[in-house]
Amino acid sequence: MKMIWSIVLLVVVVGVMNVGECWEEPVGNGGDGVIRVGGKVLCQDCTEGWNEWVAGHKPIKGCTVSVTCMDERKRIVYYGRDETDSEGEFEVTINKYIHGKQIKPEACFTRLVSSPDPICNIPTDFAGGKTGVKLGRPTLVYRDMIKHVLGPFYYTTPMCDEPDTNVNDNDNDDDNSYEKEKNY
């Protein structure tokens, strides 16, 4: 009788292990089933002369760049980030399958998050770095790896930042002295 219960228990354990393996997410080892997003982050100073401004960009080490992927209902299914190295380069690796669902690269976007540089820390929207850029056509497709090379993204100095000139029509400024004088 003990022998029968041992065999039944062994069969149950093996069955549970097999079910557990079915739910396991595919692991990206060296490029199997992954999406890689990479690029560069540079500092562009508008206070320099034209030649220095065009060719004088420098990489920023330690900038944070994020990748956010959404599902068809516009819910976030993946958020990842990376810091740039001394060359200003970043790379985020995403498994193609998360919780059994395939990530669609066209539903992912990349954007600048922060810059550690005390002078060059204003994100620009050049190449979509500030508002975010959607992943489009891949740069490289090899077996189970899709690679997107983006950018370069740029930060600039506060002196180069464009002021917000949008007038908010919803402002109800009750402290308008002209309106007060007009009502008397």
Rank of each mutant, 00 (worst) to 15 (best):
C69G: 12
N95K: 11
I94T: 03
T156R: 02
M1P: 10
R81N: 14
I146A: 07
N172Y: 08
T47A: 11
D175T: 13
F90M: 00
L9P: 04
T165C: 10
I146M: 05
V113D: 09
G56A: 03
T157S: 10
E21Q: 13
G33R: 07
G33M: 06
Y97N: 07
C108S: 02
E181T: 11
N176K: 12
G128A: 00
C120M: 04
T157D: 05
G49L: 06
K101C: 03
P59A: 10
A127R: 05
K58C: 04
N170L: 05
S177V: 06
G31D: 12
N95I: 06
V133Q: 03
E48G: 09
F109T: 05
P152E: 03
C108L: 01
D82R: 04
Y155C: 08
V113Y: 02
V13L: 15
G15A: 12
P158V: 06
T131A: 11
Y79F: 15
R36K: 13
N95E: 13
G33L: 08
P105Q: 02
G88W: 00
V67M: 06
C108V: 01
M1C: 09
D171Y: 14
C46M: 09
G49H: 10
N18K: 12
I122Q: 15
D161K: 15
K101T: 12
R75W: 08
V27C: 10
I103N: 05
Q102G: 08
G30A: 10
K147C: 06
C108D: 01
I98A: 05
K180C: 06
I76L: 01
L112T: 07
C43I: 04
E48L: 11
T124K: 01
V141Q: 11
G136K: 03
N29P: 04
C46P: 03
N172D: 15
I119L: 09
D85F: 02
T156S: 12
F109I: 03
Y178V: 07
